[in-house]
Design a binder for these strands. Structure first.
Length: 606
RNA sequence: GCGCCCGUAGCUCAGUUGGAUAGAGCAGCGGCCUUCUAAGCCGCGGGUCGCAGGUUCGAGUCCUGCCGGGCGCGCCA
């Protein structure tokens, strides 16, 4: 149980015992039952570790003065052992200061549970299906797809961390008009013809054409469907050694995203699932034929106001037709919840799918759409109209590569891109300045956070070299040496992590984890510099440890407590970054490119 | 016109299911490295939280209306 949960329980118990003793008046128990009060962390440290508005929430119903109510509560709370001090504040808040031992116990808990700290085994663990990315396999992943990829991935990670079983799935649109066009574009390029007007253009088309000519020339002269399948396959797998065609799977992997299932739209048609779903809709009267086309009837004005085409008058099915069958298939696989991560431009699609599920007699309430707003890419200060068909594209691969190179480390690009996308709420539009992302890649806040982790590791390395061992259990009198106000404040911050994870998961808001990790980083770095200025080192400086028997003159217990505390910070830190899929490096050396542009570095050459 | 999202510091964005004196990064200015990583720290300047009403002990947060931006409303995906 997290610290806040424990405190909340203590407040609850205290209130109940007050009510049972009749001290809250005749309505006491009833009021307690339906009052909505909260426990939260005050913004200002003077207001204590936690604060509750319970007296305010109860006062109205009980027709009592909130401050008087708060006084009664305060008097009782202190005897619970969890709370060191409680005071009435403002109109009727109760500010709570927790006993240091509460935090010491939590630190020990962090050290014991390691990487799983903050993870809860939710009793209500669900089987959850998360569909995300699902970009058409007719081109490489664009920067905007990257947002969906990392957002969906972290939502999945958060759900797993909170006790759910998650399946990650990519729905491959390998059927229909777009793939046919794609194949025709490649074919045209292979024959040196211009691609059709509404076809796909770009270097990757030419490269795919050239590649097919060398490895599989027969497919270019064969059946159109077979060619389409082949093109899609290379699009997903990538062409060895090609910059233009790294493959969607490879790009996702270098972003740290891995899907469990790649689900083929074409297979739905092949197995007759589309036809079956439509037949069922038809027999229950949800389809109507107009002008030779088949429409799914709109349910009502509120959810969807138009009939939607499922089969065009030329006999071809629309994507919506396969989508219906696809979601029915997901339901049949037995998931408790179907999450679909979509770009905001697909918003209109949500009501349609839900209505279709309902029409099929399936539980549409299991369907949950998560929309992320669009990404606008800017280059040279101007908006880049990104369009696959026009061949004017900025790919995830390209950005990752640039940043990797600038930072001199593989994985830097993924970390930076993840951080950039994940630090913003999915509800906000994002402006992605390509030049800034490349030029200033070393100013990316992600490096700040990673540096914090590297610094913690560095202290621990130094400690080991001086003979300190990592201790997971410390007696209370050693923990008590952790007396610096910042140390307790940061310990309190660590204890908040499970709540952050829980909230980020239930609200599907990964950016809360980013904000938390950033805050933790800032608090530690600030503390660390302060120690330096106060000449209060965690470890004995050289002047001490070069002497024999320095251990006798050094405050060993203080160092032990601080080192255990630092390891706890490091683990929470790493756990947070892990949830975000961002690497937590053990060392980060200062970039060499710190020299001035004039080429001088220190001494002037003779 | 209808639906969804957004509007907070010069710029990019946070802001805990309504809480106490609205924050961070970047940009600007000024300080801090003989000692555990200066990719760091400290300080200063910078705000009509788009506008107007409403709900209540309390509103950046909820409701209504307006203004501005994004997206969608196709026998496209």
């Amino acid at each position: 149980m997290s610290v806040s949960q424990r405190v909340k329980k203590a407040v609850e118990t205290t209130l109940r015992s007050l009510a049972e003793a009749g001290e809250l008046g005749p309505e006491g128990l009833a009021a307690l039952k339906d009052a909505q009060w909260t426990l939260e962390r005050p913004k200002r440290p003077e207001h204590g570790d936690l604060a509750t508005n319970a007296p305010l929430a109860l006062a109205k119903r009980l027709k009592k003065n909130p401050r008087a109510l708060a006084e009664t509560l305060v008097a009782r709370l202190v005897s619970t052992g969890v709370v060191r001090a409680a005071e009435v504040a403002g109109p009727g808040f109760v500010n709570l200061r927790l006993a240091p031992s509460v935090f010491h116990a939590e630190l020990a808990d962090i050290l014991r549970s390691g990487a799983s700290y903050g993870h809860a085994a939710a009793a209500s663990g669900e089987r959850i299906h998360v569909e995300f990315v699902s970009a058409n396999p007719t081109g490489p992943l664009l920067v905007a797809h990257g947002r969906g990829a990392v957002f969906g991935d972290v939502v999945a990670r958060l759900l797993e961390a909170t006790g759910h079983r998650v399946t990650r799935e990519y729905y491959v649109n390998d059927f229909g008009n777009q793939v046919r066009l794609f194949a025709e574009s490649v074919l045209a390029a292979s024959q040196g013809r211009n691609v059709p007007d509404d076809g796909y253009k770009g270097a990757y088309i030419d490269e795919l054409a050239t590649w097919l000519k060398t490895v599989d020339p027969n497919v270019l002269t064969g059946e159109r469907d077979a060619l389409a399948r082949t093109c899609v396959m290379w699009m997903l797998q990538g062409v060895p050694g090609s910059k233009e065609l790294p493959g969607i799977k490879t790009t996702l992997r270098s972003l740290g995203v891995e899907h469990d299932v790649w689900f083929s739209e074409e297979s739905l048609h092949r197995w007759g699932q589309v036809a079956a779903a439509l037949r069922q809709l038809d027999s229950s009267g949800f389809l109507v034929r107009k002008d030779g086309a088949l429409f799914f009837k709109a349910k009502d004005e509120a959810s969807d106001d138009k009939d939607r085409v499922v089969q065009k008058s030329d006999g071809l099915y629309t994507y919506f037709a396969s989508d219906i069958a696809y979601h029915a298939d997901k339901v049949s696989r037995g998931y408790d919840r179907l999450i679909n991560v979509l770009g905001a431009d697909h918003h209109g699609y949500v009501a349609r799918v839900r209505n279709a599920l309902e029409a099929l007699g399936l539980p549409s309430e299991r369907f949950e759409a998560l929309l992320y707003q669009l990404v606008f890419v800017y280059r040279d200060g101007a908006l880049v109209k990104s369009s696959k068909r026009a061949g004017n594209i900025i790919t995830v691969e390209e950005v990752i590569e640039e940043v990797d190179e600038a930072a001199g480390r593989r994985g830097a690009g993924s970390d930076a891109l993840r951080y950039f996308f994940l630090s913003r709420s999915a509800n906000s539009n994002v402006d992605f300045d390509l030049d800034l992302a490349k030029k200033k890649s070393l100013d990316n806040p992600v490096f700040y956070v990673q540096y914090g982790h590297a610094r913690l590791c560095s202290i621990l390395r130094k400690a080991r070299s001086l003979g300190f061992e990592l201790e997971e259990e410390l007696p209370e009198d050693v923990w008590a040496k952790l007396a610096h106000p910042d140390e307790l404040a940061i310990a309190a911050r660590l204890s908040e992590f499970p709540d952050v994870v829980d909230e980020a998961a239930s609200k599907r808001e990964p950016h809360r984890v980013v904000a938390y990790v950033e805050l933790l980083a800032r608090e530690f770095q600030s503390y660390f510099t302060r120690l330096k200025n106060d000449a209060d080192p965690i470890l004995p400086p050289a002047s001490v440890h070069i002497q024999h028997g320095w251990q006798k003159h050094w405050q060993q217990d203080k160092s032990r407590a601080r080192l255990a505390w630092i390891e706890a910070i490091r683990r929470v830190y790493a756990a947070g970054l892990g949830l975000l899929g961002i690497s937590a490096p053990e060392r980060m050396d200062r970039p060499a490119a710190h020299a001035d542009d004039d080429g001088f570095e220190g001494e002037v050459k003779p």
